[in-house]
Computed example of a mutant assay.
Amino acid sequence: MIIAVIDGMGGGIGGQIVNYLRQELPSYFEIYGLGTNSAATSVMLKNHANKGATGENAIVVSVKKANAIIGPLSIIIPNGMMGEVTDKMAAAVCDADAFKILLPISPENFELVGLENKPLMLLIKDAIDLLKKEFNIK
């Protein structure tokens, strides 16, 4: 099973997601750290992603192989992350057959209503619990 973690900017969110996935999932799960920039990819690789790739084409190609995609909400918003998310990246994530788990971390000018305001660590824990439930992982 391949889990694609997508992040940009400094890679802090993606790095934490990869770290928690490594702690919670069996070692045979492949984790791809897909960064909109090299700094984000580097942070995810330092947190033990199996593979890392950077940029638009890498994300467009890699999400096709993924069984699950995890990242902040911005990965499906063209021009999200201060312009790091391209139209093609956002469309590739949305069009991928993978199960998508988006953390409700809103970019500027966006507000999501009806959601609990939780710390990032709890959002990541909820995301991993949802992934385990979706794929029957004990």
Rank of each mutant, 00 (worst) to 15 (best):
I2C: 03
I2S: 02
I3A: 03
A4S: 11
I6C: 07
I6T: 08
D7Y: 07
D7L: 08
G8C: 14
G8K: 14
M9Y: 09
M9T: 14
M9G: 07
M9F: 13
G11M: 10
G11A: 15
G12D: 06
G12F: 02
Q16G: 05
I17A: 05
V18E: 01
V18T: 09
V18N: 03
V18P: 01
N19P: 01
Y20W: 05
L21S: 08
L21A: 12
L21W: 03
R22L: 09
R22F: 12
Q23F: 00
E24R: 07
E24P: 01
E24Y: 02
P26F: 00
F29N: 04
E30F: 05
E30L: 12
G33T: 00
G33M: 05
G33P: 02
G35A: 05
G35Y: 00
T36L: 02
N37C: 00
N37E: 04
S38V: 04
A39R: 13
A39T: 13
A40C: 14
T41G: 01
S42Q: 13
S42I: 01
V43I: 15
M44E: 09
M44S: 10
L45T: 10
H48R: 13
H48I: 06
A49I: 00
A49H: 00
N50M: 02
G52R: 01
G52M: 02
A53P: 04
T54P: 05
G55K: 07
G55D: 11
E56L: 07
E56W: 04
I59W: 01
I59Q: 00
V60H: 07
V60S: 04
V60F: 03
V60P: 01
V63M: 00
K64N: 11
K64I: 07
N67K: 08
A68P: 07
I70A: 04
P72A: 15
P72T: 13
L73N: 02
S74P: 00
S74C: 09
I76F: 09
I77E: 05
M81K: 02
G83M: 07
G83S: 08
V85D: 00
T86W: 14
D87A: 12
D87S: 14
K88E: 14
A90N: 10
A90P: 09
A91F: 08
A91T: 11
V93D: 09
V93W: 10
F99Y: 15
I101G: 00
I101Q: 03
I105S: 11
S106M: 13
P107G: 10
P107N: 05
E108H: 12
E111Y: 13
E111C: 08
L112I: 15
L112N: 13
L112Y: 12
G114F: 14
L115V: 15
L115K: 15
P119M: 10
P119S: 12
P119L: 09
L120N: 12
L120Y: 09
L120S: 10
M121W: 10
M121S: 15
L122R: 14
L122W: 11
L123W: 14
I124C: 01
K125N: 12
K125Q: 14
D126C: 10
A127S: 15
I128Y: 01
D129C: 06
K132H: 12
E134Y: 06
E134A: 09
I137Q: 05
I137Y: 11
K138N: 15
K138A: 13
K138G: 13
K138I: 11
